[in-house]
Amino acid sequence: MEAADTFTLLPLQMDDATGTVSASGPANNALNTELAALNALHRGLLNVETSTGTPPPPVPVNPKRSAQIGKLRESGNAEFRKGNPAAAVKLYTLAIDMALQRPHWEPSGLVREEVSGLLSNRAQANMAQQNWAEGSVDAEASVEMKRVGNAKGWWRRGKCLLEMGRLDEAEQWVKQGLEFEATEQDLVQLRDQIESRRNGQISAV
């Protein structure tokens, strides 16, 4: 970084009609990426409903989007209970997209919470259709978003891996899960299942 009172003047120009900034001279990759991010942020910032046009402080969250996401999740759950997992997957996907489209200055903890729950539900709906591969990826993502207190996510990926016959990975995963949720009965059972399956395999060979 340069000294506090100097900076490098970059060759930038602004398009009046669209209100986007672009590089006018030779530009490297980093500059272009940064400008794209800047323009995206600018578009988001134009929709802000504060008098000053600055993003509001993170804490009071705009309840509108939360309500929409909640609604989508509820209808997804309803479809799943009706025995219609394909439709449920679609609804959960919509809800996840909506949660990820939250303006970035809103609390990240909230996004983690929402997305983790939704992904876990989508994993379940995928598992109900025997899409073990998709289910395992969803459950992994869910755990990545929320490691503690997400026993279902841990269990679901373990189960998917077991169903796909990837015993080594399943064992690793469940072991890791037990470090976070040592008392979870389902996980313990799953570990036993994996072990017995592994023993059966060895004896068969």
């Binding site: 970084m1 340069e2 900076f7 490098t8 003047l9 970059l10 930038l12 602004m14 009046d16 209100g19 900034v21 980093a30 500059l31 940064e34 400008l35 800047l38 942020l41 600018h42 910032l45 134009l46 046009g53 600055t54």
Partner: peptide, 27 residues
């Protein structure tokens, strides 16, 4: 180099045409 700082200050010092405040805020 602090690329974002350079962009912000470049935009701030641009005279013709003046960059609107909303872009400056984003920067």
């Amino acid at each position: 180099q602090h690329l974002q700082r350079n962009i912000y200050l470049s935009l701030l010092h641009q005279e013709d045409p003046k960059v609107p405040d909303s872009i400056l805020k984003a920067a």
